[in-house]
Design a protein around this nucleic acid. Structure first.
Ligand SMILES: [Mn+2]
Ligand SMILES: [Mn+2]
Ligand SMILES: [Zn+2]
Ligand SMILES: [Zn+2]
Lengths: 142, 142
DNA sequence: CATTCAATGCAATAAATTTGCATTGAGATT
DNA sequence: AATCTCAATGCAAATTTATTGCATTGAATG
């Protein structure tokens, strides 16, 4: 749940018109405390407005391309989406429950990843380092 | 490329009959120096023997379930497969080129991930920690 | 008022994987 | 030997997730 980010500003700063649909998608992602799948986002939006599934996919592509939203891979087949790192959102690892598909945010320092050496030596371009922990969540353990 | 692993033993140790197809899938994965997609594996096998795509998927599921092979997520839509950590294969991060889809193994120490704290405090079951670097590979940079 | 174009919708398609059911063939059982 | 059984595999259809092509709309611009 993010109270700091101004979604309209984020869109404008990336030269994107702040349309209702874009704002809605961004709010669903930003107001949630863990990453969501495109299906999750679509289902949530459908409850309060009329929007097409394809529009959600297209907006997500756009937001990812502009670096506003992060596309996060899971141990499953669907991508999940969360706010990309910015002044209010620091990079952090995620936990994916292979039983229920719920994804959680882990604290920034729960896993300590030192990427300095790699950045120096890697002979290509590095865009992103993704750390994901897979397992069974507390709820599903019972 | 692995010369240490005895694939037949690995299968037997997991109570799996060492069928020709299972050995072939495991050899393709083990003899390769980077993870492959199911399609890669299928294409490779089709060149020298007659095997069904579904059989490949089923064998991969089985090998993953038994912990012989690791299912590795990418920034793309398909899973990749590599030898699971064992005495000859230590856990390590991977690099995924978002342009050509090639996945590379990074050295165990190119990224230093400290998971001790998490293991102590996490209120669920942890099966796996996956670290993936996304970007553009040396070849695709040109 | 006419034109343009970004945003969206709708239907069809694609890619990757999974499922259901049939077939096969190597032992085990009679 | 004939029959039975069952794990392994094959083949076709279905599922899941995402993408593409083309039509529509409506606000901004001239
Ligand atoms: Mn997160
Ligand atoms: Mn590897
Ligand atoms: Zn769970
Ligand atoms: Zn590449």
């Amino acid at each position: 749940m993010c109270n700091q980010c101004n979604y309209e500003n984020l869109l404008n700063a990336s030269d994107l018109n702040a349309t209702d649909n874009r704002l809605r998608v961004l709010e669903v992602i930003g107001n949630n405390s863990y990453p969501l799948s495109a299906a999750d986002i679509f289902t949530t939006l459908k409850r309060t407005c009329s929007i097409n599934r394809v529009t959600v996919y297209r907006i997500l592509d756009l937001l990812v391309e502009r670096g506003i939203v992060d596309r996060i891979s899971t141990g499953g087949r669907a991508f999940y989406y969360g706010m990309a790192p910015n002044e209010n959102h620091h990079p952090h690892p995620h936990f994916y429950c292979t039983r229920c598909g719920q994804m959680d945010c882990l604290t920034q320092d729960s896993l300590n990843v030192d990427t300095k050496a790699l950045w120096k030596t890697f002979p290509g371009r590095i865009d992103k380092v993704e750390v994901r922990v897979d397992g069974i969540c507390k709820n599903c353990m019972k």
